[in-house]
Design a binder for these strands. Structure first.
Lengths: 217, 217
DNA sequence: GATAAGTTTTAGGTTTACCTAAAAATATTT
DNA sequence: AAATATTTTTAGGTAAACCTAAAACTTATC
């Protein structure tokens, strides 16, 4: 897919480069490029003032870097809302399309799109849509796998990964849906939850690690 | 802007490469790249089977080339409709945005966009939107500059060029608008036309060469 | 603390777009 | 037809992404 500077910045952002150092290794697996390419790009991003770099330690976004990444993420998420709400895409299909659209979106276009969509707060996966270049505080969430039995929670966001999204559609689970954790299987067995309509759903441990929930009273 | 193969094909199409040979020179000015670059790209397009090339004579699109170009033009024009009708752009602003969007539009996306827009027939500049890969016959039009005094005509399409489009907005002229030609100034003087609301408009000869009209009875 | 394992960097090369400048081919003018 | 002008091609180079393989550095293990 040939990521460019913008993609690197976004990846660093997604790996929490806003508040901690991110290793080259993480970027390598995130973008599926060679370690050499990452190393080379980090040098360029330092020159551009987007990141600070401690060799062998990792990179962290500067203010400029955070702003750049936020703008891109904003565009990405606005397109996702558009694709789902206006064009009838399912939320598991939108990521790849948005990935391409984001890079050719002028600021004028993103502002008008935002207005057209009625200034949405969140993308279809439940992530906040940054306003301007300001990074929005995300709600405190936990992986579903970290909950205790009996805890009531609400599905808040989902890692943006096609297979996982398809799996959720199969399970008929949606963002914003509340449920109570019934039991956690041993030996990697599935987690059992009960939805508000009393339906019982079995979720693999692996998926549970990528589903983020808000604890409810 | 760094045109790629798709842009070259589209440019050849727009220079009527469907039914006649197009010179390198024309492509040079159309895409604002060096003659060397055009020459190099033509070699590649021949290898890909998109064009036939007679050295020093010019290029012509093959069936494959026509199909590729039509798909791209379809995407371009659908985006233009979207930008004007849904996002409130004026028709003089949409070309550049659509130019970028068209390249990142999957066939799924273009089909869904088409449906969302209600299967429009024409883009905001009055050009037909190709359906699938089939090239649609364009209505027979003439440059406004070729009309005779007294002829009634209808503005059908406009060369997609920002300055010209802005000029038309200034003159309050719109696609589909009917008028009668009153007089043609000598010494490159303006052409005078009378709109249906009786308003009289003066159009420069230069603009008149880039405005295409349908003759009315 | 020495060895092994893992990570990052450097070195050297590829691709695909671009370019300028000069050579070759064609077209036009005298 | 010869000279001039225009257009196209070729030759040689740049830029920004990529890569593999080997060297350098850091961390973990024995």
């Amino acid at each position: 897919m040939t990521p460019n500077k913008e993609d690197y910045l976004k990846m660093i952002f997604e790996l929490n480069g806003t508040y901690k150092k991110v290793s080259n290794k993480e970027i390598v697996s995130g973008l599926k490029v060679s370690a050499a390419s990452v190393s080379e790009m980090m040098t360029k991003l330092v020159k551009g003032g987007y990141i600070t770099y401690t060799p062998y330690q990792g990179v962290q976004l500067t203010e400029t870097g955070i702003a750049e990444a936020s703008i891109l993420i904003r565009k990405h998420r606005l397109w996702e809302v558009f694709l789902v709400e206006k064009l009838g895409y399912s939320w598991s299909e939108v990521h790849e399309e948005a990935e391409l659209l984001e890079h050719v979106t002028s600021s004028t276009l993103s502002e008008r799109l935002d207005a057209f969509l009625g200034f949405p707060e969140k993308c279809p996966h439940g992530d906040m849509i940054p306003k301007g270049t300001v990074v929005v505080d995300e709600t405190v969430t936990y992986p579903l796998s970290a909950l205790e039995v009996g805890q009531k929670a609400c599905l808040y966001k989902v890692m943006d990964e096609k297979e996982l999204l398809d799996y959720l559609i199969e399970l008929d689970m949606h963002i914003g849906e509340s449920f109570t954790l019934l039991s956690i299987g041993s030996y990697e067995g599935p987690i059992k939850i009960q939805k508000e309509n009393c339906e019982i759903v079995h979720i693999s441990q692996k998926a549970a690690q990528h589903l983020f929930v808000e604890r409810l009273a």
